[in-house]
């Protein structure tokens, strides 16, 4: 119910916000979806990934390359991004889920950096260090000819984000979500029940990766540009800050944190420039010390107290 209300309010935003704020909100929502997908791994599955940006990047490159060489349809690009995310999740996840705890963290961090190197060195395909530029503007069912592009693209992004959230929420509530939580809490027991623990984890990584890749497609379509830094530790850490700030065991928390952080970064970018990263680091440290369950935890505590 609350989700439908939130979607309705968000859908009405083009009538309230100007083009610039709308574009900012579009980016915030895309990052919100990706942060929520990371929360599924970190909080729900207990798999602390430090390489989640790789999925963003894989989705973004897949969408951008599709746009340049195959189709200008936003839907086709999204499909390509999700497919690429699934394949990337299966290939890297197949190894990653055999590790646990810190090894998972290290492995995912390494995969993210290797992905950066791969994107940098495959210059003929990806544009190398300079990034993939000249991505054509996506077509959106022809609606873009009738209305301002920012507005149409916002609605498109909102639809993708809503669908992504629906997938994440359904998975969390369904049998797979219970199995994922089960492997987080007690591997031995899950194996004794007949669950393949690596299989359950791979499913979690694949769902999170596919959803994150969808968010990556939105980033590529919105900016019409992808760079190797999109895959790197910096973005992974930003996503993690969103998750920590919003709450690991929540979907809405990280999403709200993402919208807030993206807006804050934009507002302060003139004054702070690269010093934004200091703010990010400070937020990171403060969250770990003061908000172990994030803002969602504070919310729940207040709800219990009332």
């Amino acid at each position: 119910m609350r989700a439908i209300l939130a979607a309705a309010v968000l859908a009405a935003m083009p009538f309230v916000l100007g083009a610039y704020q709308l574009s900012l909100l579009t980016g915030g929502l895309a990052y919100g979806l990706m942060a929520a997908s990371l929360a599924l791994l970190v909080g729900h599955a207990g798999l602390p990934s430090l390489g989640h940006a790789a999925f963003l990047g894989v989705g973004a490159y897949a969408a951008g390359l599709t746009a340049k060489h195959l189709s200008e349809s936003a839907v086709v690009q999204l499909g390509a991004a999700v497919l690429a995310g699934v394949v990337f999740a299966l290939v890297t996840g197949w190894f990653a889920v055999r590790t646990r705890g810190f090894f998972f963290l290290m492995f995912t961090l390494a995969i993210g950096e290797i992905a950066v190197q791969a994107a940098t060195r495959s210059g003929r395909v990806t544009g190398g260090d300079n990034g993939l530029s000249g991505i054509p503007v996506s077509t959106l069912f022809g609606l873009e000819t009738a209305m301002p592009y920012v507005v149409v693209f916002y609605w498109w992004a909102l639809a993708v984000v809503a669908a992504g959230f629906a997938v994440l929420a359904a998975v969390r509530r369904g049998p797979l979500g219970a199995a994922i939580a089960g492997t987080r809490e007690n591997e031995a027991r899950m194996a004794a029940f007949g669950y393949s623990v690596p299989g359950v984890r791979l499913a979690a990584v694949t769902v999170a990766g596919a959803v994150c890749a969808a968010g990556g497609a939105l980033v590529a379509q919105k900016d019409t540009f992808v760079a190797p830094t999109h895959l790197g530790v910096g973005v992974s850490v930003l996503l993690l800050v969103m998750v920590l700030l919003g709450g690991r065991d929540s979907l809405a928390g990280p999403a709200l944190a993402a919208v807030g952080l993206i807006a804050l970064r934009d507002v302060t970018s003139g004054a702070l420039g690269d010093k934004w990263l200091l703010v990010e680091g400070a937020l990171f440290v403060l969250c770990v010390y003061l908000l172990p369950e994030g803002l969602a935890g504070l919310w729940r505590k207040r709800a219990r107290a009332a």
Binding site: A170, V171, G174, P175, L176, A178, A179, A181, G182, E185, M190, F193, G194, Y195, G199, V200, A203
Partner: peptide, 23 residues
């Protein structure tokens, strides 16, 4: 962290081969 019912339901779903259904 799960309810007692959910503890047992995990086993029931595994036996019925429904453990990994998304929905």
């Amino acid at each position: 962290g799960l309810t007692c019912l959910e503890n047992v339901a995990l086993a029931v779903r595994a036996r019925r081969g429904l453990g990994l259904r998304a929905w």
